[in-house]
């Protein structure tokens, strides 16, 4: 069983159209801002955003940390070069020292604590720069990662908009190819690069091809885990582990819970649309 195919041309037109409308018309912003890591998601997002807004209305920030590899910085710069982002619209801001200062004040941090802190420092910088440019922060997360909660809450999750949020990683790869994202970026193993040697598939214990098919069958075809196991020929334990990741990270995908007191409260029966007049 394969994921349903994607018409990259039409889907990219669709996302581009929505991005343009959201940033310029609805949000009344002057531009979009995003962090470019040298990975496939941020590269694909940057290509789409450049199509939607034009390179002059896109601000790209490379924010290398302690665990960022030199080749990723080069790839990020290549994306910026290919998109012809004007010099005034891109910047490399190393964050190792910033995170180091915080570590000095916070004492010894575990690997995950430092990783989350790093992601949140990036988020804070992106919002600061975006505010200065009257831009909104365009996130780069894809559907696979959002669904299993493979992101830092208020870190890379702290964005205004997620244009790839409806696309599995498998589909992002297809779209990246169509858009002309450099092959090297498409082929290299995805990583949040929050600590040395980290790769997404290594940390998750599953490759994206399998993960995407499990997620699609469970949540779009509504199959139960046993049926998914039968259809894909993967161990039941693997499917169960994915389901657990989805469930325990539900809080990351929703606004904070508010305890009900009044007649109408947030998250309960405060049901106004996002676009309110």
């Amino acid at each position: 069983m394969q994921l349903p195919s994607l018409d990259s041309e039409r889907v990219s037109k669709y996302i581009t159209k929505r991005l343009k409308w959201y940033v310029l018309d609805y949000a009344q912003a002057k531009a979009g801002a995003l962090g470019v890591s040298g990975g496939i998601d941020s590269a694909t997002t940057a290509f789409l955003a450049a199509r939607a807004l034009g390179p002059k209305r896109l601000f790209c920030y490379v924010l290398p940390g302690r665990a960022t590899r030199q080749e990723d910085i080069q790839d990020a710069e290549e994306v910026i070069r290919r998109l012809k982002i004007p010099k005034a619209n891109h910047e490399i801001i190393p964050i190792t020292d910033i995170v180091g200062l915080l570590k000095e004040k916070l004492g010894k941090l575990s690997k995950v604590e430092e990783g989350n802190l790093t992601a949140r420092v990036r988020m804070a910088i992106l919002h600061q720069r975006a505010w200065r440019e009257r831009a909104i922060v365009i996130g780069t997360g894809d559907k696979s990662e959002l669904t299993i909660g493979y992101f830092t809450k208020y870190g890379d999750g702290g964005v205004d908009l997620l244009p790839l949020g409806g696309l599995y990683k498998t589909h992002v790869r297809q779209l990246a190819s169509y858009l002309g994202v450099p092959e090297r970026i498409i082929r290299k193993p995805p990583t949040p690069a929050l600590w040395d040697g980290q790769t997404a598939e290594g940390e998750l214990g599953i490759n994206y091809d399998t993960l995407d098919r499990i997620l699609y069958l469970r949540f779009e075809e509504w199959l139960d885990p046993q049926e998914i196991t039968n259809r894909l020929g993967v161990a039941k334990g693997k499917v169960d582990r994915v389901m657990t990741m989805v469930k325990v990270t539900q809080h990351k995908r929703l606004p904070p819970e508010v305890f009900k007191i009044g007649f109408r409260d947030f998250g309960s029966d405060w049901r106004y649309p996002r676009q309110w007049a």
Binding site: P4, L6, R10
Partner: peptide, 10 residues
């Protein structure tokens, strides 16, 4: 609204 934007013919 759009739903199931899958398929080769778009």
């Amino acid at each position: 609204p759009i739903r199931g934007f899958y398929g080769a013919k778009g």
